[in-house]
């Protein structure tokens, strides 16, 4: 299912990151960074709330808007009951929709906001996401001080908050269309190989988007998947070639492999993941390129592994989903 939009534009973006991201190749491009994973808070959960709140504050400041001008905040994160989002948004008296789509939450949020704006229901909306390496490790895996060994296919949850302000007023970046993904199940239940779990979802969404819009893969200057990591990236390329005869070539990138320096930051293993991974790379690095018209057409395909330890222990496989948004530069 693909929606086309005529009057949805990116007004501004804001990114806040933790220490690992700040040692990565994109370190100079983020709006704010913390050297400590606690972010001056008492717990990791509160630190995650702070990351999202900071990103909203910076966004309001950058776009020179008062919080009362914002009509809707859509947000999500990885914690149970998407609590980081609720606590961050509770500071503002604005209508709020909380969403969960694991690491594809950012594109799902943009898609929902775009439908509201394009339909004329609202004039602007903020979409926020956050993730925190240690709050996620605590919830989904072993205690962080345990230091459980991980295979090289494992990904590393990014620490950060990212917010975007979408408006109906013309700007340099247009949200051109969006494709709603479908849940995929390939029977994989290895939580240390999320790239393999999610590659299929990215492939299906890219294919559906191209079919719906009757476009060729080379129509886009850049196609950026969410957080497949270096292994998932290769799986996606192989699958696209074998199944659809589509060659993902020089215009294909993956946020998970861009946010960290995979050669020098060995602890990240296969690359970054988490809801903040895709937007951090896109907002901080790709959007300025679109604004400057260095690249003009970009397809962002954020991928989410809908992982629940309980369901996996009960012998179920890990499901995945992916939503795509297409962005264009405006003359």
């Amino acid at each position: 299912m693909t929606f086309k939009y005529n009057n949805v534009y990116v007004n501004n973006v804001a990114t806040v990151v933790g220490p690992y991201e700040n040692k990565g190749p994109l370190k100079d491009k983020f709006d704010k960074s913390y050297d400590d994973l606690y972010c001056n808070e008492k717990t990791w959960e509160k630190a995650e709330v702070k990351l999202m709140k900071d990103s909203i504050e910076i966004l309001l400041k950058k776009s020179k808007r008062d919080v009362r001008d914002i009509e809707l905040i859509i947000g999500g994160d990885l914690l149970n009951q998407i609590c980081a989002t609720s606590y961050a948004v509770s500071n503002y008296n604005i209508p709020h929709l909380g969403i969960y789509s694991a690491c594809s939450t950012s594109t799902e949020g943009i898609l929902i906001a775009s439908n509201f704006i394009d339909g004329g229901k609202i004039k602007n909306a903020i979409v926020s996401v956050s993730s925190h390496n240690l709050s996620s490790e605590k919830q989904f895996r072993n205690p962080t001080e345990y230091g459980s060994p991980r295979p090289s296919t494992a990904t590393f949850t990014t620490t950060g908050g990212a917010s975007i302000l979408l408006t109906s007023a013309r700007s340099k970046i247009k949200v051109e269309s969006a494709t709603v993904g479908r849940i995929c199940d390939m029977g994989i239940n290895d939580a240390n190989n999320m790239g393999a779990v999610m590659a299929i979802a990215a492939a299906k969404t890219i294919k559906e988007h191209l079919t719906d819009t009757k476009r060729d893969i080379n129509y886009y200057d850049m196609i950026i998947t969410g957080d497949l990591g270096c292994y998932g990236k290769e799986i996606l390329k192989d699958y696209m070639k074998e199944e659809y005869n589509i060659e993902l070539d020089n215009n294909y990138f993956d946020s998970g492999t861009m946010i960290f320096d995979l050669n020098n930051q060995k602890e990240v293993k296969a690359g970054g993941s988490g809801p903040a991974c895709s937007p951090l790379v896109n907002y901080a690095y790709i959007f300025p390129l679109i604004e400057k018209r260095i690249i003009n057409k970009v397809l962002i395909v954020a991928t989410g592994a809908l992982f629940s330890p309980t369901f996996v222990y009960q012998k179920n496989s890990i499901l995945s989903i992916s939503h795509a948004i297409s962005l264009e530069s405006v003359k």
Binding site: S152, T153, G187, Y231, I235, D238, Y239
Partner: peptide, 18 residues
């Protein structure tokens, strides 16, 4: 493509743990 074929691709990019 069924699960077996997909798993075949996934297995090509297994962890290179020594």
């Amino acid at each position: 493509m069924d699960r077996i074929k997909y798993k075949h691709i996934v297995d090509k990019y297994k962890s290179d743990e020594n």
